[in-house]
Amino acid sequence: MLSKLINLDRRIIFILVALAVIIPTLLPLNLPINVSNPTQRIYDYIDTLPAGSTIMIAFDYGPSSMPELNPMAKAVLRHCFDKKVRVIGMTLYPFAPTLADTLIKEVAEEKGAVNGEDYVFLGFRPGYEQVMLRMGTSIASAFEKDYTNTPLTEIPMMKDITNYDQIDLILDLASGSTTQIWITYVNVKYSQQIAAGVTGVIVSNMYPYLQTKQLIGLMPGYLGASEYEKLIGVPEKGTEGINNASPVHVLIFVLVVIGNTVFFIQRRREE
């Protein structure tokens, strides 16, 4: 019995995981969310920006990370449009333009933001550091046209934006190593303020930069999304996601506890 339990067929674990996700999706939980300091710092920074300021959001993630990062992007966009903070969207990830464009349009429509005046989406350019460095001199040298092929010179919002000097914050929404590259090239070279929203799996990578204050704030995965949603008072997919993820976390916790208990009993017997 014990050895059966310790060598539990992984398919049983898979079924348990599936149930732990499906059940709360059907019967939603409503757990209280406490906002962590790194998320609060991003919110506070954007909240104190005067109307007419500009932030740049880099959508550096693909479809696989959409569930975690899209809610963050949505919440931040809502916050920006409410505060009349202008948004420049762009991506260094080839699979992101379609999803980022769809998302920005959706939030803009909801908030009545106008393309070219309140926001602009520049699309994708290959080459990470090359694009970042070029934008340091002039955004137009990296993106001559926006995603809809309008030259930047014809976009009203871009008339007084040349380079990072006119951008108050860069928010990198990342599923890979792009945040480190933004920090290395744009924070260090241009002293640009940078914040990040990243998938749960790379959160722990970001802590060295939080400590050195090279990141002004950090949204960690679903948790970060739900926290930002709480801050702007619009609980949505992020909150739903973290609620649905909670039982799986508890399940893994319980599985590990069971595994270790059985392991100890077995070892005792062997001794």
Partner: peptide, 9 residues
């Protein structure tokens, strides 16, 4: 692990 989700608190 458990501190990562609201259920932990």
């Amino acid at each position: 692990l458990i501190g990562n989700v609201p259920v932990g608190d």
